[in-house]
Every structure is written in structure tokens, then in C-alpha cells.
Design a binder for these strands. Structure first.
Length: 720
DNA sequence: TCTATGGTGATTTTT
DNA sequence: TCACCATAGA
């Protein structure tokens, strides 16, 4: 390799360089927001290979998301070319999956085991509820699901000491049955991938020493997000001799509620011998003002490693705090500011961030009215969509008739007249014969326990699946095509009216394309059938999140999903006590600190302009409630904030309110936020005005009739 | 077996 | 408020 030390390091600052070139041994990189951490990991790998002559084959790099893994891989290929290909880069789940595929026998799995996602898991638990006749009033499937996942994330198998607590007893029984079903059906859930892989290495000294000898360098991104099992996994694989580079930011840990252990950073320092620490504090993203705000806010958290972001850049504009009189006013303000920004020719690369998804609606409505293109990030991913999962369930059942979850899912999809009653009959056979649903279905036909009509439906269903099984031998694309055609799914949606159904039909066609692309790139390195490989792929990589693909659209999303992104202009909306910090986080100091970190993440997404907004009144579950500004607003130093807005909006009517008062008080005596009554529509609240003089129109939210625009001259509005 | 109604409860989300 | 579900009628 001809890359010289110089070119590799020339664009890095001193701290980055010392992280990249840290000597053999363990390294903890505390990387602040926007400090170039991915860059550091990628360059460190390149440096190890080109300067230290470490074999690419001995390097393992772990990330949390497929997206991050993909980016890392791409950047490595840019730097290293073909040599990058033998580096193992992937997510914890992806790499565990790979190891389990390679060593399925030692792991005690069938060769064609399948990966199930959270939705499949929940379905299975619901089925167990029916099987074990669990009372759904006392036990919720969702709670049980998170119980199981929590246990696995902790690295614990459920079947320990039998608890005498009757509640626990039931939960344990469900857990046991769940494990049994997974085993019988050859299914592995997400948490299981990690746990099983950990156990595989733990219980197999030969395998373990092989991989320990192979991977001399392990690198982990977003270390603050690791949970217990991921830490153990890493620690086991590292053994005594590997060098581990952990990169993370304790201030950006926002997944504690999902089992991430921020303490893992301290633990790393303690348990991984002679750890060097490097802090990346120079920020290349935000203005000094924004960084000061972020620093001041996060200062209120205890037990931090401590880190102060700084920049060589300019101070930039002050942060604007806006208090709307209600959530619609807040949204209208956002729209107005965006309009101004767009008018001055700046791009629509704008992030509207909020604590919870429910907030998106009001914002969305105001963007629609203003005609500003927007896209909402969130919702289902491609492979999570119902119609796609239906089609894939056919594939799963064809490949593995033991897959009861899939059987149940598609038995009556599209509707073929086999409803709950018939399913119940089949389930009885399952219980009495201890067999799969598939076997039970065949038995039901033989023993003629069903009505003639349903029996014939069931017969053709069995014939359909059997017929598809012969297609298995050809190819993935052929099978998917046959499934979509022969199952009647595509026809079912095509025959329906409405955009929704047409969309679903299109999605099914898109699935064929996805399979086509996958098969074209597929190389059978671990003698895995392309069909099995594709099914795992669909579970492990949910595909792109759905959002309207408008060019030049402002982006609406939760702060959680904004992590890792940046925008020149950022709005953080709904900064109110009880919403952000969320009232669920009120009890514990720990939870509050995580909320504060979340706010820190939000603030540090902004490059140039930052707005913090809230509403003094908000509709919560249909009730107008008085709101207090979030403590996080108070934690931003006064001198960084646009004081004019703050004073005006907090203590006096807003500019807009003033205008309306000036203009209309003489004529109507109305002001924004005021309660009014209309002869036909009854009572409501004045939201906005438009135009002037005779053409003045007012926007009113009526209690009974919803939002309406009315011409002020004709509408006989009276103040209440 | 498919469609209407009522009770319930309501963060954040990747794999 | 409203979306999700479970249960009851056509």
C-alpha cells in the first residue's frame, strides 16, 4: 500500500490523529457530537492496515445500524480499495447472525433457521396466550415480549429458579413455551441472535480461540448504546490479547430505556486493561453559540466524563426561543420562519424535531396549508409492511412447514373463507397431536372435521403450498413471483378500489424487484440457499423507512431518529414540562438525565440556526391544557437566546398577536387565542388572521366543527 | 366470516 | 382526541 502516513493523517486534528495512531492496546475515544468520529474509526482501520501491517482479515468493526455499517464499509473501500473487502464490518446482530450461520451445528440450530422480527415475535406470543389459555386481562402480550427481550438483553435465560410469585410463574411459563416454539419452528429472534452467538463462543473453546486468534483488532462505534449482552459478547471475543477501540459519547446515550448501559463506558475503562483515553472535542458542525448552549445544558447532568465542545467557527446567530399561545400558533411560527429562510434562497435542508410522534400532526397540517414540501420520517419500513410480510410468510412456510407463525398469518390471507372457527379446530389438532399447524391442517382434511366448503378451501391451500414447494428448487425470484401470483395476494389488492390497495399491489411488485436485485448480487459463500439468505436479510434489514420522496422537503422526525444527522436549520418543538422532559421520566433522576441528553442530541443537530419552541396551551387527549416551558429552556444561558422574542413572546402578546389586536380590536375586539362564538358553528378559538380591511379572514377552531377559515366581514363572530 | 361499535390508554426504536 | 383492539351482530 502506497498511502503515506502524511496523506492519511493530513486532514485530521491533533486529537483525531492521536486516536487514529494510538498504539496497540485498548482505546476509549470520547467523541463529541460533530467531532468526526466515524472518520476516526475509518482512518484508524486504514492506518492499522497500511502502517502497522495488520491484516484486514484480523479486523472487526461493529456498529448499531445497518446504515452506519454501510457508510463505514463505503468509506473503507474509498480509502483501501479491494483490501477493505476482507474486513468484517457489520452490526452486532448482523455479525452474530453470520457466525451462527457458519456454525449452526455447534450453536444447536437447524441449518435453515430463520430470523424473526419484533412483530413476528409478538404474534407468536399472542398465539401462546391462546395455547396456554392465558388471561389477556392480566397479562399483556407486549409486556411479556419486552420482558423476554429484556432478559435476553441482560444475557439471562428465563428458565432459572422457579419463582413462587404466581404472576412470575405465568410469565415464566409463557417464556418457556416461547423458547420451545422457537426451537421447534427453527426461529431466532433479534435478542436471541446475540445471546446464542455469545453462548456459542462461550461453550466452544476451540471456536472461541480460533476467533480470538483471528481478530486482533476490534472497533466499536456508538459504544454508549451497548447493552449487557453486547458488552459480554465483545469482551469474550476480545479475550486477553485483542486491541479494542471503543468510540462513543456518554452525553449522547439516549437508548437506556432499551437496555443500553451508559455505565459500559466506565466498565470498559475498568475491565479492559490499560485503556488509553482520547477526547474529540473540536466540533466541525455548529456555531459557537449553539455549542455553548449544548455545553451549558449538558453540564446539568451528573457523573459525566466531562467534555467541552468547541469550534474555530463564528458565534453565529442567537438561539430563538418562541412561545406560541397554543400548538397551532407554534406550528404557524415554524412555517413563517421557514418561509423567510426559503425566500432568502437557502435550501430546504431543515429539521423539525420533536419528542414524540404525536406532535407531528399539527406541524404537518400547517405545512400542508402553507404548501411547503415536507416529509415525515417514521412509520413502517418496506419489509415491515403487512402485505410484504404476508408474501414473505408464504415463502417461509414453503421453506419450512414447521413455521406456525407464518402458517397462521396467511391461512386466511387473502380471505379464503377459513376463519377463526376453523383455525380453532386446527389448533385443537395441534394440541392433541403435538404437531405443526401444517400437519394439523392435513389431518383436518383427512379426518373430515370441517364443513365441506371449508375443507375444500383448506385443501386448495395445502395444494397451493405444496405446489410452491416444487418451485423452491428453481430460484428465489421464481419463488417470490409464484407466491405473489398463486397466493392470490396481488389479485386481491389489484381488485380493490382505492389508493391504499393499489399501493399495496405496487409494493408486492417492488418485492419482486428487491428479490431480483438480491439474487443478482448473491454469492453463496456459506452454502446458504439464496431463499433462506433473503429471508434473513429482510428481517435484519428492514429496508428504507417510508417517507414522501419529495425533493427539497423539510424533514419532520423525532429527536431519536435525528441522531447522527445534521441540518443548517433546526427547530425543536414542544419544549414543555411533561412533554420534553416527558412526564414518564419525571420520577427518576436517571430518566431525567436521559431526557436532557436527548435534548443535547437535538441541539447539536443544528449547524447555523436553532429554534426552541413551545406552546403555552396544548390540546392533550382532547383537552386544552396550560403548559409550562421546559426546564431545558431555562438551562440555556440567557445571553445566547434571542431575548426580544423571549420577552415579547413570554410576557407580552407576540408580534402577530399585537398586529391582530391593533388591527381588529377597534372593529371586532378579537385577539388570537380568544374564545369566540359563531351563530352556526358555536364556540371556538381564534387561531390566525389573514388579509386586511374588508378582506380579512379569520381562522377559528370550533369545538364542534373543527377548523374553519371565515371572512371576518360576513361571519358574525362575538367574543365569549 | 366480515363489518360496526365501544372500551382503553396514550414515549422514544434498532436489530 | 383518536387510534387500536376486542367483541358483538349481519
Amino acid at each position: 500500500m502506497e498511502t503515506s502516513d502524511n496523506t492519511l493523517l493530513s486532514f485530521l486534528n491533533t486529537a483525531q490523529q492521536s486516536a487514529v495512531t494510538a498504539a496497540k492496546g485498548n482505546l476509549l475515544v470520547l467523541a463529541g457530537a460533530g467531532s468526526g468520529k466515524t472518520r476516526v474509526i475509518v482512518h484508524r482501520i486504514a492506518w492499522l492496515i497500511t502502517e502497522q501491517h495488520v491484516s484486514p482479515y484480523s479486523i472487526l468493526a461493529v456498529t448499531f445500524t445497518n446504515k452506519a455499517a454501510g457508510e463505514m464499509r463505503a468509506r473503507l473501500e474509498e480509502l483501501l480499495g479491494r483490501e477493505a473487502q476482507s474486513i468484517w464490518v457489520g452490526t452486532f446482530h448482523g455479525l452474530s447472525h453470520k457466525l451462527l450461520r457458519l456454525h449452526w451445528q455447534e450453536a444447536g440450530l437447524p441449518q435453515n433457521f430463520q430470523v424473526i422480527d419484533g412483530d413476528d415475535q409478538l404474534q407468536m406470543i399472542k398465539r401462546i396466550f391462546k395455547q396456554l389459555e392465558v388471561n389477556e386481562d392480566r397479562f399483556e402480550p407486549k409486556k411479556i415480549q419486552s420482558y423476554i427481550n429484556r432478559k435476553k438483553d441482560e444475557g439471562l435465560r428465563g428458565i432459572r429458579a422457579i419463582d413462587e410469585n404466581p404472576y412470575e410463574k405465568v410469565v415464566q411459563a409463557i417464556y418457556q413455551q416461547y423458547e420451545k416454539n422457537c426451537k421447534e419452528n427453527g426461529l431466532v429472534d433479534f435478542a436471541e441472535l446475540l445471546l446464542r452467538c455469545y453462548e456459542l463462543l462461550k461453550n466452544n473453546s476451540e471456536l472461541l480461540s480460533h476467533y480470538q486468534a483471528r481478530f486482533s483488532h476490534l472497533l466499536v462505534d456508538e459504544f454508549q448504546d451497548t447493552n449487557a449482552i453486547q458488552y459480554q459478547w465483545l469482551s469474550l471475543l476480545a479475550g486477553k490479547s485483542a486491541s479494542v477501540t471503543a468510540v462513543g459519547d456518554d452525553d449522547q446515550s439516549i437508548y437506556g430505556w432499551r437496555g443500553a448501559k451508559i455505565e459500559n463506558i466506565r466498565r470498559f475503562e475498568r475491565e479492559f486493561k490499560e485503556t488509553q483515553m482520547v477526547r474529540l472535542e473540536q466540533n466541525y458542525r455548529s456555531t459557537a453559540t449553539i455549542l455553548s448552549a449544548a455545553n451549558a445544558l449538558i453540564e446539568n447532568n451528573g457523573g459525566r466524563f466531562g467534555k467541552n465542545l468547541w469550534t474555530e467557527g463564528e458565534a453565529g446567530d442567537p438561539i430563538t426561543v418562541y412561545a406560541g399561545f397554543n400548538e397551532e400558533d407554534e406550528a404557524l411560527y415554524v412555517v413563517r420562519e421557514i418561509r423567510e429562510w426559503l425566500k432568502s434562497g437557502k435550501g430546504a435542508d431543515i429539521g423539525i424535531l420533536y419528542r414524540s410522534n404525536a406532535q407531528s400532526r399539527v406541524l404537518e397540517e400547517s405545512f400542508v396549508r402553507a404548501g411547503i414540501p415536507y416529509s415525515i420520517y417514521g412509520g413502517l419500513r418496506f419489509f415491515e409492511r403487512a402485505e410484504i410480510k404476508d408474501a414473505l410468510a408464504y415463502v417461509r412456510l414453503v421453506v419450512n412447514t414447521e413455521d406456525n407463525t407464518s402458517f397462521e398469518r396467511i391461512l386466511n390471507v387473502p380471505p379464503r373463507g377459513i376463519g377463526d372457527r376453523s383455525l380453532e379446530k386446527i389448533r385443537e389438532i395441534v394440541v392433541s397431536n403435538q404437531c405443526s399447524y401444517w400437519e394439523a391442517a392435513k389431518k383436518a382434511i383427512e379426518t373430515q372435521v370441517l364443513s365441506a366448503k371449508i375443507e375444500s378451501s383448506l385443501r386448495s391451500f395445502v395444494a397451493l403450498i405444496s405446489g410452491l414447494q416444487t418451485t423452491t428448487k428453481t430460484s428465489l425470484v421464481d419463488l417470490i413471483q409464484a407466491v405473489i401470483r398463486d397466493s392470490g395476494l396481488l389479485r386481491f389488492f389489484k381488485e380493490q378500489e382505492g389508493e391504499k390497495a393499489q399501493n399495496r399491489a405496487e409494493n408486492l411488485e417492488e418485492l419482486m424487484n428487491a428479490a431480483n436485485d438480491y439474487e443478482a448480487e448473491y454469492s453463496s459463500e456459506d452454502e446458504l440457499s439464496p431463499i433462506t439468505a433473503f429471508l434473513s436479510y429482510t428481517s435484519l434489514e428492514g429496508g428504507e423507512r417510508v417517507h414522501a420522496s419529495t425533493e427539497n422537503a423539510v424533514q419532520l422526525m423525532t429527536i431519536h431518529s435525528a441522531k447522527g444527522l445534521e441540518f443548517p436549520m433546526v427547530f425543536i418543538c414542544g419544549l414543555e414540562d411533561g412533554l420534553f422532559p416527558h412526564h414518564f421520566s419525571r420520577e427518576s433522576e436517571q430518566a431525567l438525565e436521559e431526557e436532557r441528553r436527548l435534548c443535547y442530541v437535538g441541539i447539536t443537530r443544528a449547524k447555523r440556526k436553532l429554534y426552541l419552541t413551545y406552546a403555552e396551551k396544548r390540546r392533550i387527549f382532547g383537552r386544552d391544557e396550560e403548559r409550562q416551558p421546559s426546564r431545558f429552556i431555562e438551562e440555556v444561558p440567557e445571553h445566547l437566546v434571542n431575548a426580544i422574542h423571549r420577552k415579547v413572546t413570554v410576557q407580552a402578546p407576540t408580534m402577530m398577536q399585537k398586529r391582530v389586536i391593533d388591527r381588529s380590536e377597534n372593529e371586532t375586539g378579537l385577539r388570537l387565542g380568544q374564545r369566540v362564538v359563531h351563530p352556526k358553528f358555536g364556540e371556538g378559538m381564534l387561531l390566525d388572521t389573514e388579509g386586511s380591511g374588508e378582506r380579512t379572514r379569520v381562522h377559528v377552531r370550533f369545538d364542534q366543527y373543527g377548523n374553519k377559515w371565515l371572512a371576518l366581514a360576513y361571519a358574525k363572530l362575538e367574543p365569549v
